[in-house]
Design a protein around this nucleic acid. Sequence first.
DNA 1: GGGAACAAAAAGTCTGACTTATTTGCCACA
DNA 2: TGTGGCAAATAAGTCAGACTTTTTGTTCCC
Lengths: 233, 233
Amino acid sequence: MSTPGRGLHGHVLESLGPAITAGEYPPGSVLRTDELAQRFDVSRSVMREAVRVLESMHLVESRRRVGVTVRPKSEWNVYDPQVIRWRLAGADRPQQLRSLTVLRSAIEPVAAGLAAKHATADQCAELTECALGMVANSRGHQLEGYLVHDVTFHRVILNASGNEMFARLGDVVAEVLAGRTHHEVMFEDPDPAAVTLHVQVAEAVRAGDAVRAEHLTREITVGALQELDILAP
Amino acid sequence: MSTPGRGLHGHVLESLGPAITAGEYPPGSVLRTDELAQRFDVSRSVMREAVRVLESMHLVESRRRVGVTVRPKSEWNVYDPQVIRWRLAGADRPQQLRSLTVLRSAIEPVAAGLAAKHATADQCAELTECALGMVANSRGHQLEGYLVHDVTFHRVILNASGNEMFARLGDVVAEVLAGRTHHEVMFEDPDPAAVTLHVQVAEAVRAGDAVRAEHLTREITVGALQELDILAP
DNA sequence: GGGAACAAAAAGTCTGACTTATTTGCCACA
DNA sequence: TGTGGCAAATAAGTCAGACTTTTTGTTCCC
């Protein structure tokens, strides 16, 4: 997902960002630019650029005569892809994965409904292709192949919704799906019912049946919630 | 919504950011740091900090020997509150308002359902209070008073959902609601049916009836979509 | 005890010199 | 004519140091 730490300031960010999002510096902690510059062995100009970026993410606040203070988690720009990446790489990966899955469960069904109305012929074709790819990789521990098609499937849905805000969640969904396959234990082949649902969603979108597409996608996301034991019985 | 342009670099941002998000510099346009610094009458260090922030928002990309190139809209961090604010203040305010309203229609019903399960007694009380406030201000052109309670109502729902991603959309919803009242024409008193729905949502949440809270909120958001002529007949 | 003047601390700003990566274009050679 | 590499130009990147401004905390006087 996106850019590595380009430039010195990027390198500093890749070190400081995860530390802050991991809660290594509790809210209210005060850092001093000069000290940080020394610690990371960079000039103050570089350090200042890094701090500015952290500030734009609302991770910290810089005030004269005080220093750079860490903000409480409730103020972070939690939709910033870089913040999401840092959190997924750190200690509160589980919580981040849960909240992102709930977010998915809200967005994707609506996106699928819109996709049924707005998808182009190309997008419908790609959707069907992905669904078939998922079927083809659904047995015999071909998890990687399955994942690729799964990710693309959901990306296409989000793009086809025609809503720019939904479209930009493609990377987030990709990250969640990849996380499930790689980090969470996923011994077995995917649930056959889920595979079927994807095929049916592709059909519904192609048929322009918004209600059906939304309903079927909701079933998919319910499955994702159950996997993480979200959803009270 | 959030911070004004603090510091010189902030001032530059408040000028450059809106210009870029307004499409004043088409994707691929190349800016040079030195020229910008001259134009805004600031030092290169300050200009560099501003560029770094724009870069972290994925509005621009800075490359050696090339300059600062503007990225296509499809790559912008459209969830960044500052980007949202800039776009709402500029030319594509209508499109931004529409995509945000669609986003609301996906998020808020789910959030209301979760709120019914997780809301504290305090939150339930505040919700009821807001609903009553809306009723009290629903007649006689008391639009400002109505707006305050409306905004708080939706904020409380999002917070009570217990999902950090939902909670952070409070500012966005506030912006959309304020936009409807202030910029879009809103001659008349609010739709009585909408007011009633808010009261009923507050009741459902208090009663812990997730399904009902979700359904009722969906009706509210459908109304919001209809106001903007989204939703095919 | 309260308020005003003062001192210290840290971010903020500017400048100028230098480094480095990347592109462009030239030129030689096949 | 085309292609390879080499060299120059260019703009961002980095650094160091001096100076300014704002804010905070202290102290001293009324």
